[in-house]
Design a protein around this nucleic acid. Structure first.
Lengths: 238, 238
DNA sequence: AAGCCAAGAAATGTGCACATCCTGTTGGAG
DNA sequence: CTCCAACAGGATGTGCACATTTCTTGGCTT
């Protein structure tokens, strides 16, 4: 028997997908880097087809860019693309906070308060990593509280693409979503039923993020695949 | 030599993708239909891997649903999912028409007027097919006029998923976007700079589409793959 | 010396064959 | 007669090997 692709191996491609995604999230892969399949297969210890499938998925999701017969590359994100993404987010999230301000369940209010308090706790502990995660989840949480799965999925995609800039440009310098008090203020406006104020705060919050990312180092040094995936192997999720 | 996969074959998978997508758009494939790879490969005259790749792409885009080791199926769309999609569209398109009402270029106004007049012409000619296309393009056009590529791509995806209901449920009975005068009224409000009115009209328009699709035949008879792909082979685009 | 051409090497894309899993059927037991 | 279990047929998933294309290196020409 060469190898039994048992039922447990169905999560293997998911692991490869997560490994590459995590490497990008950590800022290990600079824009313009070519991700060649044999090298990734050798480093990750899986077959080339597995890598191939994961790469195709990442390309389709917008994380990578593929050129036929050339390979897949880490995209060089333009500030214009970033502005457009945040523009769409402004449209959606302003509508979201307006809707939540006009009416929400007590359970929703409870989850929102819990999240804000958790963010404040992370801020006091100065836990940058946790705060980075929570900051992103805040925006997804607002979409979830609307009870619209499609909306949640869409916003999650936009948000992951937004965080690409943080990850690829300056992963360790920037903290995260501007000031932590922003989320608290937005939550207060929602819970208080002040739709206009909540929308205005959200728009200002997103605009602040754009200007925060405006100044970033345009230089990128070449990356070694072997070095980039040091300590990254299995496990799933982002 | 078995076969030369020349450079012209790079568009072959695109053709397979378009063929399946067109079959769905024509309402040939009823919800719940299992699309098995050998049958599709035999009918379309391509290799199984080509079909496989197209199926994976369609699954990733939400057109089909895949169950591991079971196959890919045409999804049975719930009215709840449809409502959620139109809910997201309401958020985005209300913001779009508001933005366009507050300011747009003369070129944008020209394109908008041209589109509306073309819709009216199609209505006079009673050209249902053309009007169906134009009705969808109207909503995409509004996104394009905002000059945001990300927004256009997102809305296009939502719109194709919206038309799935028309296609799968009752492709030949329903005409399209409710009344053709709706689009004209929205355009007039935009060109007149009446943001609130334009947004209100758009929300009403989308709400009308939802109620229009509420009553649909829940029955679906089994489909033969051989028969479904009659006259559908190559060519690209949607 | 600089630019161009050609040959080798490596990477991508594709078809093929096999292993595994699911499903429909048939036979037997209760 | 009904239900369960084993089996056969077929479909999906995966690894492998090859064809094609592209990039690089070396040598040649101007």
């Amino acid at each position: 028997m060469p190898r039994k692709p048992r039922k447990g191996d169905v999560a293997a491609d998911e692991a490869v997908y997560g490994a590459i995604r995590r490497a990008m999230h950590m800022g290990r892969l600079a824009p313009g880097t070519k991700l060649q399949e044999p090298a990734l297969a050798r480093v990750l210890g899986v077959s080339r087809e597995r890598v191939r499938k994961a790469l195709h998925r990442l390309v389709h999701e917008g994380w990578l860019t593929a050129i036929p017969n050339r390979g897949t590359f880490v995209p060089s994100l333009t500030t214009e693309e970033m502005r457009q993404i945040y523009d769409v987010r402004s449209m959606l999230e302003a509508a979201i906070v307006r809707r939540l301000s006009e009416g929400h369940t007590t359970a929703a209010a409870k989850r929102l308060k819990a999240h804000v308090s958790e963010e404040k706790a992370a801020t006091r502990r100065d836990d940058r990593g946790r705060l980075f995660e929570l900051s992103g989840e805040f925006h997804v949480l607002l979409a979830e509280l609307c009870g619209n799965d499609e909306l949640t999925r869409l916003l999650r995609g936009l948000l992951t693409r937004s965080t690409m800039h943080f990850s690829l440009a300056a992963p360790r310098q920037l903290t995260n979503c501007a000031g932590p008090h922003d989320h608290g203020d937005i939550a207060d406006a929602i819970l208080g039923g002040r739709a206009d104020k909540a929308a205005k705060l959200m728009l200002g919050h997103l605009a602040g993020l754009v200007t925060l990312q405006a100044a970033r180092p345009p230089q990128h040094e070449p990356v070694d695949i072997q070095e980039a995936f040091r300590g990254i192997k299995a496990r799933r999720d982002s």
